[in-house]
Lab assay of single mutants.
Amino acid sequence: LEELEQFARTFKQRRIKLGFTQGDVGLAMGKLYGNDFSQTTISRFEALNLSFKNMCKLKPLLEKWLNDAE
């Protein structure tokens, strides 16, 4: 759980530094990986307001997006 919290904080910082909005991330993930995510989902991930199971599902996709975006 602590690792997920740390990743969520780091993800938000890096996303902002790269100049992407939460909506940009959701749209890009849909185009790149075929998984559409709303701005609300990205927001809830960053705020740790998703279930642990959903956080675990999203983490690898967000890590991949972040690596591809950098």
Rank of each mutant, 00 (worst) to 15 (best):
F52N: 08
M55Q: 05
Y33F: 09
L66H: 02
S38P: 09
S43Y: 09
E70F: 04
E5A: 13
F45W: 04
F37W: 13
N49R: 10
P60T: 09
E2T: 03
S51V: 02
G19D: 05
N49M: 08
Q6S: 13
L50V: 11
D36R: 11
R44G: 14
I42P: 01
G23V: 11
S38K: 09
E5Q: 09
E5D: 10
E3G: 05
Y33P: 09
G34V: 05
E46A: 01
M29R: 01
K64R: 10
R14S: 13
R15I: 01
L27T: 07
M29Q: 02
S43A: 13
D36A: 10
Q6I: 11
T21E: 05
K59N: 02
Q39E: 14
Q22Y: 02
V25R: 01
G26Y: 07
L58W: 13
A47Y: 03
M29E: 00
L58T: 10
P60R: 07
G26W: 12
Y33W: 07
G19Y: 00
F45I: 02
K12H: 06
M55I: 05
L18N: 10
E46D: 00
L32R: 12
G26V: 12
F11M: 05
Y33S: 11
I42T: 02
A69N: 15
F11W: 04
A28S: 08
K12L: 04
W65S: 02
R14I: 03
Q13W: 05
L48H: 14
L27G: 10
M29V: 13
K64D: 13
G30P: 04
L48D: 03
D68C: 10
E2S: 09
L1I: 06
K57W: 09
E46G: 00
E70N: 09
L50H: 07
K17T: 08
L61E: 08
A28W: 08
T40L: 08
G19V: 00
G30W: 12
K31I: 06
N54Q: 15
L18D: 01
Q6V: 10
G34C: 05
A28R: 11
L50K: 01
K31G: 10
F45E: 00
L50T: 10
Q22S: 07
T41Q: 09
S38W: 05
F11T: 02
L32W: 04
L66W: 04
L18S: 04
L61T: 14
Q22P: 08
L62T: 02
G23I: 13
L66Q: 02
E46L: 00
E70G: 08
F52G: 10
L66P: 01
F52P: 06
K17M: 13
K53E: 13
N54M: 15
S43P: 13
G26N: 11
N54E: 15
G23R: 13
W65A: 02
T10S: 12
L66V: 13
E2G: 10
K31R: 13
F7E: 02
D68M: 08
G23S: 12
G23N: 07
S38G: 14
R9W: 05
F20D: 00
L50A: 07
Q13F: 11
A28H: 09
C56T: 15
W65V: 04
A8K: 01
N35T: 04
K31Y: 04
F52T: 15
I42M: 06
A8C: 14
N67S: 04
E70H: 03
G34R: 06
G19I: 01
L48Q: 13
F20V: 06
K31W: 03
L61C: 14
E2P: 01
Q39S: 13
T10G: 10
D36V: 10
G23P: 06
C56V: 11
T10H: 12
K64Y: 03
M55N: 02
V25Y: 00
G30Q: 15
S51Q: 07
L61R: 11
T40K: 15
I42W: 01
K31P: 05
Q6R: 12
G23C: 11
R14L: 07
D36M: 05
A47N: 12
F45C: 01
G30A: 11
G34H: 12
K53W: 08
E46K: 02
C56P: 01
T10W: 05
T10Y: 12
E46T: 01
K64Q: 14
K59Q: 07
D68L: 07
E3P: 01
T21N: 12
L1G: 14
N49Q: 15
L4S: 03
L32F: 07
E5T: 06
R14N: 14
Q22E: 12
T41H: 14
G34T: 07
L48M: 11
Q6M: 14
D68Q: 09
G26Q: 15
E3Y: 06
E46P: 01
G26L: 09
E2W: 15
L27Q: 14
N54F: 14
I42N: 03
C56E: 13
F52Y: 07
F7R: 00
I16G: 07
L61H: 09
G23A: 15
L32T: 08
S51W: 00
N35W: 12
W65F: 10
K53Y: 07
A8S: 06
L4W: 04
K57C: 09
I16M: 09
F7H: 02
E2A: 05
A47H: 05
R9H: 03
L27H: 10
P60L: 05
D24C: 05
D24L: 04
E3K: 04
N35F: 11
V25A: 13
L62R: 00
E46S: 00
K57D: 02
A8L: 02
N67D: 04
Q6N: 05
K57M: 14
I16R: 09
E70C: 07
K53D: 10
V25M: 03
T40E: 13
R14H: 06
K64V: 10
F11P: 00
A47V: 06
G23F: 13
N54L: 07
Q6K: 15
E2V: 09
K53A: 13
S43G: 13
A69L: 11
D68W: 05
L66E: 02
A8V: 09
G34S: 09
L66C: 14
G30T: 14
L50P: 01
E46Y: 00
R15M: 00
L4F: 09
G23L: 12
K53C: 07
K17F: 07
N54G: 12
L1E: 06
L27M: 11
D24N: 07
D68T: 06
G34N: 09
K59E: 03
M55S: 09
K57N: 06
K17S: 13
T40N: 06
K17Y: 06
F37C: 09
P60Q: 07
M55E: 02
T41N: 09
D36F: 14
G34K: 06
A69M: 14
R14D: 03
G19H: 07
T41K: 07
L18M: 14
K12I: 14
N54Y: 15
K53Q: 14
A47L: 11
G26H: 06
S38C: 12
Y33V: 09
Y33G: 10
I16P: 01
L61Y: 08
K31H: 06
L62P: 00
L27R: 13
G19R: 06
L50W: 04
L4C: 01
C56W: 10
K64E: 12
I16K: 12
N35A: 12
L66F: 03
E2C: 01
M55Y: 06
K31N: 05
S43D: 10
G30R: 09
K31V: 06
A8I: 08
I42R: 00
R9E: 07
A47D: 15
E46Q: 00
E2H: 02
C56G: 09
R14W: 03
L4I: 14
L1D: 03
L62M: 14
D24R: 04
E5W: 08
L62E: 00
F7V: 03
F45Q: 00
M29Y: 01
F45D: 00
G34Y: 09
T41A: 10
T40C: 11
L18K: 04
M29F: 05
T41I: 06
K59R: 08
K53I: 08
G23T: 07
S38A: 12
G19Q: 02
F52E: 10
S43E: 12
R15Q: 00
I42K: 00
R15A: 00
K64I: 05
S51G: 10
E2L: 08
A47C: 13
T10N: 14
F37G: 03
L4G: 01
L18R: 04
R9M: 07
N49C: 14
L1T: 14
L66R: 01
N49G: 13
E46F: 00
V25L: 06
F20L: 13
L32D: 14
G34Q: 15
E5G: 11
K59S: 06
G23H: 09
G30H: 12
F37V: 09
N49W: 03
G19T: 02
G26C: 06
E5Y: 05
N54S: 15
S51C: 05
K31F: 03
S43I: 12
T41L: 11
L1R: 05
M55L: 12
E70Y: 04
T21F: 01
P60F: 10
L4H: 15
A8P: 02
L61F: 15
F20H: 11
R15L: 01
T41M: 15
G34F: 04
F11E: 00
F20C: 08
E2R: 09
W65T: 02
D36K: 11
L18C: 04
G34P: 08
T21M: 03
T10P: 00
D36E: 12
L58Y: 05
K31Q: 11
F52K: 11
Q6L: 09
F45M: 06
L27N: 12
R9C: 07
E70I: 04
I16D: 06
E70K: 06
Q22F: 07
L18V: 03
L27W: 07
I42G: 00
A8M: 04
S38I: 06
